[in-house]
Design a protein around this nucleic acid. Sequence first.
RNA 1: UGCGCGGUAUUGUAAUUGGCAACAUGCUGGUCUCAUAAGCCAGCGCUACGAGUUCGAGUCUCGUCUGCGCAACCA
Length: 710
Amino acid sequence: MKEPKRYLVTSALPYANGPLHIGHLAGAYLSADIFVRFLRLNGKDVVYVCGSDEHGAAITIRAKKDGTTPQAIVDKYDELIRTTFEKIGISFDIYHRTSAPIHHETSQEFFRTLNQKGEFIEQTKEQYFDVEANQFLADRYIIGTCPKCSHTEAYGDQCENCGSTLSPTELVDPRSTLSGGKPVLKSTTHWYLPLDKYEAWLREWVETGKLEGELLHYPEDWKNHVLGQCKSWLDGGLQPRAMTRDLDWGVDVPQEIEGSEGKKLYVWMDAPIGYISATKQWALDNGKDWEPYWKDKETALVHFIGKDNIVFHCLIFPAILKAHGDYIIPVNVPANQFLNLEGRKLSTSKNWAVWVHEYVAEFPGKEDELRYNMIKNMPEQRDSEFTWKGYQESNNNELVNNLANFINRVVVLTNKYYEGVVPTIDQDVQIVDSSNQIEMSYQESELVDLHDKLQDLGQHIRTYEFRAALKVLMEISSTGNQLLQFNEPWKMIKIDEAPVKVVMNTALQVVTALSVACRPFLPFTSDKIRDLLNLPHLKDEGEYMDILNKLSEGEVLIPDGHKIGTPNHLFTKIPDDVIEAQIAKLEAADKANKGVEYAPVKETISFDDFTKLDIRTGTILAAEKVKKTKKLLKITVDLGFEERTVVSGIAEFFKPADIVGQQVVLLANLAPRKLKGIESQGMILMAESPDGELGFVSPSEGIGNGFIVK
RNA sequence: UGCGCGGUAUUGUAAUUGGCAACAUGCUGGUCUCAUAAGCCAGCGCUACGAGUUCGAGUCUCGUCUGCGCAACCA
C-alpha cells in the first residue's frame, strides 16, 4: 500500500447530554489529536473532524425532567464541550454539530440514496408505546416482571436477576420508566439495513484487509481487541438493524418517502454521518472541496473511538458507506479501551469522574500536565487507570525533574557562559557522548542519535503507539541530561572552553528538537520552549519533517550566534495538598450523590394480600458461593422449627464467611425455585440502595428464630 | 449466560516470528553542584494458579480462579 495522499481523521462525536470527563479524552480525543498534530508537523494533508451528537431519546427525556427544551440542553452542552476541547488543546479542524441544517441534509441524502437503491427492508412490528409520554419505548425504558424468575424489576431486554434475555412483550405487567404508566402495544414500520447481506464482504475486509480484490489495510495493523470484537460479531451472524426510530428529536426521515411521518433516523444513520457533514462545513468555511476526503481512494480514513463503539465503526458504518456507494471505508479504527478512575469505573451518573472543564478551571496553565499523564496511561491495549497520585508523580518526577529541568539547565548555562548566544564550535573537538563513550564522539554522532530517536518516535505515532512515542520523547530529554552529566561543562569551563562549546551547542540542538517533538503531546509546552529559545512558535506545517531533513543533512537546528531567551520554569511541582484536595472532592461528590433517587412507591395492595405473605425471623447457619456465578450464594437459614436452603444474589456484597450468624428476615412461603440446580426455599429480605448496594434487614437483638413478622 | 480483551516487581505499564523479562516509580548505597532537594552511577525486586507441547513458554494448548467490555444508545 502506498503512502496516502491525504488523511481524514475523526473522533467519536460526544453526546451533548453532559460535560466531558477524562475517560472521554483518553478514549477518542487525545490519541487522535496526537496523530493529526504529527501528520501536520510532517506536512501532510489532514482534516480532523468532530462535533456534538445532539439527537436521541436521552436528550428529550433530560429536557422533560429539567423542564426545558431539547434545543436548550444541546446548546448548553455543545458550548461547554466545544470550549473544553479548545482549552485542553484538541486541535479539530472543525467541531461541528448534528443539529446543523447541513447535517440534516447530508444524513437525509444518505437515507434517500439507500432507499432508492433498494438497500432497506421495511418491517412492521408491534412495539410498546407510552401514551402519556406520547412516544415509543426503547427496550431499556420498559420494566416489568420477569416471566422466568418473577423478578419485578426486569428490563425489556433482559432480567438482571436471572440473566435471561427477554423481549419487551414477554414481560408480565410492563410499565414505562418514563411515566410509570402501562404502555400499550402499537404497530410501527421501520426501515432495516440488512447487515446479514453484507456479512461476507465485511468479514473478508476485516480479516484480510481485502475488498473486491483490493488490499485496503493489513489486519495485523489493527488492534487485537478490535479484530476480536468484529470477529465475535461476524461469527454470531449479523442481523438486520433498524435505521429509523419513532422519536420526536432527531433528523426526519425524508418527507417524500411514504410512511415517513413521525420517523427519525436512528443514531447510526445520523451520528457517524456527522463526520461527513462536518467535513462539508469545513470545506465551505475554508474554500476547499470536501469530496476527495471521503471519496478518493488515496485518502486514509481513520476513526478514533472508545471500545464501546467498535462494531459500529468497523461494521455498521462501513456497511452504510459501501451501500451508498462512492465512499471510502476506514483504513484503521484504533479503538482504545477504557480508563478507570482511582480503581473504579468512571460514571457520569454516579459523579465518579474528573470533569475536564473543572480541571482546566482549577489548574489553569496545566493542560499539558494532564495530557502527559493521560497519554502515559492511555488504555491502548487494555483498560488502564487514572489516579491523582499518579498524576502528581508523573508531573513531579518526569515533567519537572527530567524534561523541564534539562531544558532549564541548558538555558541557564547558555546564559551564564555565552550571554545567551548559541556558541560557534570546532567540529573536530571530541566530547563524551550520552552513552558515556568518548571514542569517536563528536557533535555529529550525537546528532545522528537524535535523528534516530526522532524517527523512532514518529514510527510509533504512525502505528498508533502513543505511549511508546511519549517514552521516546522522554528518552531524548534523559539523553540530554546524561550529555551534560558526563561532560560536566561546569567543571570543564575552568579547564578547556572548546568542548564546553560543543556540549552546549549540542544540548541546544536537543532542546530545539524537543520543542518540535513534544508538539503532538504537549502543544502548550512546545510554545513555551520556543519562547525560551527565542524561536517562533510552530505553525504545524511540516516542522518535524524539516528537522529530520536537517539532521540527516548534517545541518544544525538552531544556528550559531542566535540569541536565546532567559530561563523560566516550564513545569512546577504539584504539592501533596493539591492532590489531597482533589481526592477529597471526588469522594465528597461520590457521597453527596448517594441516595438521591428513590424508586416510586408501588401499586396499593389490600391487607389480605399482605397476610398471604409468611415472613419469619431466622439466622444464617452456613453460606457458600455457588460455582460459576458472580452473584449467587447458597445460604442455610435456621428458622427454629426447621432449616431452609436459600439461594440469594448477594455475593457481590458479602463474603460467605462474614454473614454466618447474621440475623435475617425470610419470606418463607415463596414458591420454591431452582437456581443453578439448587432449590431455593424462600427469600432473604434485603434493603437495596438506589445505586444497588445491599444490606440485611434483621430483627433487633434478642428476637428468636422462626417468629412471625407482621 | 454466550462471545471478546486481559491478569507481569510496591505501584503504573512494556515485550515483531516461542529465545537474556524492559521502562517509569519505589527502596538501598554512591557521586556531582550547572539546574526546580533536581541530575548521574550502581544495587534490590516480577510473569494469577495447575497441567501439557517444546532444547527453550509471559508468549502456544487445556483446565481453574479472576478483572473489564460487548451483546444491552455511557470514550
